[in-house]
């Protein structure tokens, strides 16, 4: 090794200019796909809306039938799809980064089952009806379960919870809540009827009010996630190296968990059990982005949104005039793709 080399132009992180250019290109491509998917999601449905009418409805609505469909049905539904997709994709990447576990999904902290239990309980105990009201309960349940899991991971120890402790506590709490939910729906037929449709995962028939309900939570979660990305990079070199680099490991984990909770809690409350999306998308994004979380998180988010919208559109097309729940489409279409990808290349380990 020659130690006398003059300092030439050093390679920047993320590699040479070409690597960086390629990454920006992928990012632009993902934005493009998302835009196309959004337009399709607004145009396609039980009643197809021509592209000209889509534009008319968005830009200068004049109260035509198509304007009303676009503005009161399709746009809110699409907005929720985009938000939930981004949220679940980012939350999944965060969760897998923190736990260094490919099995980790955004529901790992008990979010999904917390939401399910709270919604079922609200139906049985308070006689709540209507989607609008369930969502607040779902959100509250998701946040409570996640905070509980984090607290359990903290109890007794000094410093933050270890990823394994978090994952196991999350799984235990999830199973516990799922069992309670099962017991409740087995005793109450009406709750069972709501629960089984929520469980399948859907963004159909969500109005603008639902979109506004979840927006602040998802926005806050995304901000926390972006702050968390560089710290997570340091943490991926192991806790010792992260500490040596001046990283407060406990703080990093806490911020990460808060971000995951907000993101997945809000989307699960609005759309049902879609955590497979959050599990799958980071595995698809990682080969493109490499191990740098500052790229992985945006890639995962955008891919999540694209996947959710396209699956939702497909669900409207294949079962016309009815609809197939987006959760089912995602699993049926996404999982084979995911499996093929895992088979074709050597999986990128965390």
């Amino acid at each position: 090794m020659s130690t006398t080399t003059a300092v030439a132009r050093p390679p920047s992180p993320g590699g040479t200019r070409t690597v960086r250019g390629r990454r920006l290109l992928v990012l632009a491509a993902l934005f493009g796909i998302l835009a196309v998917a959004a337009v399709l999601s607004i145009a396609i449905g039980a009643k197809p809306v021509p592209l000209a009418d889509v534009w008319h409805g968005l830009a200068s609505p004049s109260g035509t039938e198509n304007d009303i469909i676009v503005r009161s049905l399709r746009v809110p539904r699409t907005a929720i799809g985009v938000m939930a997709g981004i949220a679940l994709g980012v939350a999944g990447a965060l969760m897998q980064g923190h736990t260094r576990n490919p099995l980790a999904d955004p529901g790992l902290l008990g979010v999904t089952q917390g939401a399910a239990f709270a919604m079922v309980l609200s139906i049985i105990a308070f006689g709540v009806t209507g989607l609008h009201a369930y969502i607040w309960f779902g959100l509250a349940g998701a946040l409570t379960a996640s905070v509980g899991v984090f607290a359990l991971g903290m109890v007794g120890g000094r410093g933050g919870p270890t990823p394994v402790a978090l994952a196991l506590a999350g799984t235990a709490v999830s199973s516990f809540l799922y069992a309670l939910t099962s017991a409740l729906v087995l005793m109450d037929e009406q709750a069972m009827d709501v629960f089984r449709f929520w469980q399948a995962g859907s963004i159909a028939a969500r109005g603008a009010d639902t979109a506004w309900q979840v927006l602040p939570f998802i926005a806050a979660g995304l901000v926390l996630a972006l702050v968390n990305a560089p710290a997570l990079n340091a943490l991926s070199l192991g806790e010792d190296v992260a500490r040596a680099l001046g990283q407060n490991v406990t703080l990093t984990r806490t911020v990460g968990v808060a971000a995951v909770t907000l993101l997945s809690g809000a989307s699960v409350a609005a759309c049902g059990a879609l955590s497979f999306l959050g599990l799958m998308v980071p595995h698809l994004a990682r080969p493109l982005s490499g191990p740098d979380h500052r790229w992985l998180l945006p890639y995962s988010g955008l891919m999540g949104a694209c996947a959710l919208l396209l699956a939702d559109v497909a669900g409207r097309v294949v079962a016309r005039p009815g609809e197939l729940e987006v959760g089912v489409v995602l699993a049926l279409a996404g999982a084979p793709f995911f499996v093929a990808l895992v088979r074709r290349r050597k999986p990128v380990r965390l």
């Binding site: 469980q199 059990a273 799958m280 729940e325 089912v328 699993a331 049926l332 084979p336 995911f338």
Partner: peptide, 13 residues
């Protein structure tokens, strides 16, 4: 994970 997700969601459906 992938195969299980398909089965689980088909079950839900």
């Amino acid at each position: 994970i992938g195969v299980t997700a398909v089965f689980t969601n088909v079950k839900y459906w």
